[in-house]
Simulated scan of single mutants.
Amino acid sequence: MFARITGAATRGILVALLIAMPSMLLPVSATESPEIIALMAILGGVLTFAEYFSNYPSFVEFREAPPLNRMRYVAAFVMIGALSLLVRHSMDPTGLTTLVQTYGTRLGAALDFAYSPVQLTVLMLPTETPTDSLQMVRSAAGIAYVVSALAIFGFILAIRIGNWPVANGAFNVWVNLPLFDPTTGGDVVTRLQRDGRINIILGILLPFAIPATIKLASGLIDVSHLTAPPMLIWVIAAWAFVPASMIMRGLAMLRVADLIAQKRRAVYAHAEALQAA
């Protein structure tokens, strides 16, 4: 019980820290509505604590199948932290912000080629956007996209080399996929494969579709507000993290489907061996 409480509390604190990080790193002048941010951080921490303290899953997937959620958290932490330091550089430059800004500029320039997600993200801004803001968006998009790609690559290594999730023991579908009902909708393996492929396809397309959607909606919303420091951090982070998380979820579901299929083949082979004997 004590270990469960400690683990749940630690996770809740880490989630609250993640939500509050931009406000903690940015200068006070750039922080908007700190009371709302503090409330959201507390709410996120409480929800995370309640999820991991409970014996019964509710909405967090793969909570008993590390390191998937840990890799997601690390990716989000690095992404939001780096973007916060990048935005802070224009207001309160330090040695660390200069380092982030330098690498961000290089990554943004390298990934800003024709029809790339980074280029589409820059093009979604109004033509009258200042050059400094365009450069910041390009650098932020480059950093976020590289971090998300590294997270996906790391999870692929965990599957191929680390033998995820078998290396952690038996995989409980109900605990790790609480929103997936294995009793409805046909064969479980087929449904997992279908859902996994859909998640991967959507994850690949979203970095292209989100900037296009925002550009089309520019007549309804003021896109220039996206360059405001807190908004820039969260929009770029969501633009990169959500698709990466969907791809990782799709890979995980395909892996689970493959394990179930392997288990079935082993059971069938054992039954045939018994009949032949």
Rank of each mutant, 00 (worst) to 15 (best):
F59D: 10
L83E: 05
E61L: 08
M124Y: 03
L134Q: 00
G108A: 04
T102W: 10
Y56D: 15
V118C: 03
G81W: 11
R160V: 14
T131Y: 02
N69D: 13
R88K: 10
E128L: 12
M124Q: 01
N163E: 15
T127L: 06
V100D: 05
F77Q: 09
I156V: 15
F62C: 10
L120Y: 10
L120S: 10
P66T: 03
A151P: 07
I159N: 04
F113Q: 14
P67D: 01
F49W: 09
I156G: 13
P66R: 02
R72C: 11
F59S: 11
D112R: 11
M79R: 12
V74H: 10
V147W: 05
L47C: 12
V74N: 10
H89F: 01
A140D: 11
S139V: 01
A158I: 10
L134Y: 00
A114Q: 14
V60S: 09
S90W: 09
N55E: 13
A110V: 06
D92M: 12
M79W: 06
A140F: 10
R70Q: 15
L125W: 00
P67Q: 00
L111M: 07
R70G: 15
D92H: 09
T98Y: 10
R138I: 00
T129I: 00
G162L: 06
I152C: 04
P130L: 00
A144F: 08
L157A: 15
V118I: 04
P130D: 00
V146N: 01
I159S: 08
I152L: 09
G154K: 06
S54R: 02
L120C: 11
L83P: 01
F62W: 14
I143A: 07
I159G: 07
A50C: 12
Y115R: 14
T105Q: 09
R160H: 14
T98K: 12
F49C: 03
I156P: 10
A140L: 09
T129N: 04
Q135T: 07
P126C: 05
A141H: 03
A76N: 12
Y73F: 14
R63T: 03
Y115C: 11
L47K: 10
A144M: 08
A149Q: 14
A76E: 08
A110G: 07
Q119V: 06
M71V: 11
Y52Q: 04
L85E: 06
F77R: 07
A144D: 06
L85F: 12
P93V: 04
Q135I: 02
N69C: 06
P126E: 01
E128D: 15
T131G: 05
N163S: 15
N163C: 13
S58N: 14
A75H: 03
A75K: 02
A50V: 14
S148Y: 05
A114Y: 14
F59Y: 13
P117W: 03
A158G: 05
I156Y: 13
Y103P: 09
A75V: 04
E51P: 01
G104Y: 05
A141P: 02
T97M: 04
L150W: 09
T48W: 01
M136R: 08
I159D: 04
T121Y: 02
T127S: 12
L85W: 09
S54W: 02
P126R: 05
